[in-house]
């Protein structure tokens, strides 16, 4: 489903490029610091800067599109945009349907956050966003899973006492924990194989371009700079 454009980005027309097809980047726009809408309603965050830089290096014109998390993969394979760059962890399940680039963040842990330290993480009530690897993990631990459609509502559920704890990417929880009375509880949980961009399986050529761009950003250290700037977990 087509969505509102947030801006046209990274115009990188170099000599020799005949057909300047735009690459449409799909994101959720509700998962800071990875991607969120800033006060002007534009896509902002770590992935916004990363995506713009990658497009520049791959000499492509890119456009940002937001799409509901629930239908983000069906809309990719049906061709409504060309890539997903939305804090999406690389998992086997997803690999069956889409192809990922190499991870642009190292595998980052998920974490539990709660209002008090004495929460039962395997027997209590844990909130998670629907259709995430964290939701799957909660089911596996045997805890009671409560699902909400957006990450924001999972936090609200803990604050309201509906759930004992929330599980999400640690990088997402970090600023929330800093700014409110939530605290981290339990050990970090390593889930997923890092975060990558997802492409249609038939789009190998484009995926290779972005893959190469990620490699070059890793090599010259600019990726690490970005990661540190937005505090999205460990560097390479």
């Amino acid at each position: 489903m087509k969505s509102l454009i947030l801006t046209t980005a990274a115009l990188a027309l170099t000599a020799g490029m005949g057909l300047a097809d735009t690459v449409r980047l799909g994101t959720e726009g509700a998962y800071p610091p990875y991607n969120f809408l800033n006060d002007n309603g534009e896509v902002d965050g770590f992935e916004r800067e990363l995506g713009d830089e990658l497009c520049k290096r791959a000499e492509l014109t890119c456009e940002w599109v937001t799409n509901d998390w629930d239908s983000i993969i069906p809309n990719l394979v049906s061709g409504n945009y060309d890539a997903i760059i939305a804090g999406m962890s690389i998992t086997e399940e997803r690999e069956e349907v889409v192809d990922f680039t190499q991870g642009y963040t190292p595998p980052s842990p998920s974490a539990y956050a709660a209002l008090s330290a004495d929460v039962d993480l395997t027997g209590g009530v844990i909130a998670a966003q629907t259709a995430t690897i964290q939701a799957n993990h909660v089911v596996d631990t045997g805890a009671t899973l409560v699902e909400y459609p957006t990450p924001d509502e999972t936090l609200a559920a803990v604050r309201a006492g509906e759930a004992d704890a929330v599980i999400a990417d640690k990088d997402y929880l970090e600023p929330e924990v800093e700014a409110s009375d939530l605290i981290f509880v339990g050990d970090d949980v390593p889930l997923g194989g890092g975060i990558g961009m997802a492409f249609r399986e038939s789009d190998d050529e484009m995926r290779a371009k972005f893959d190469a761009a990620i490699t070059s950003m890793k090599e010259d250290g600019s990726l690490n700079t970005l990661i540190e700037k937005w505090e999205v977990g460990g560097t390479w």
Binding site: D70, P74, E147, P149
Partner: peptide
């Protein structure tokens, strides 16, 4: 289960499971 009320222990209504399946198979 689409608006407001969360699903507990993955116990939901018909649409909840249809959404679950659509999400896992990526095929609506």
């Amino acid at each position: 289960f689409v608006s407001g009320f969360p699903a507990w222990r993955q116990k939901g209504d018909a649409l909840y499971y249809a959404k679950y399946l659509a999400d896992k198979t990526f095929n609506p």
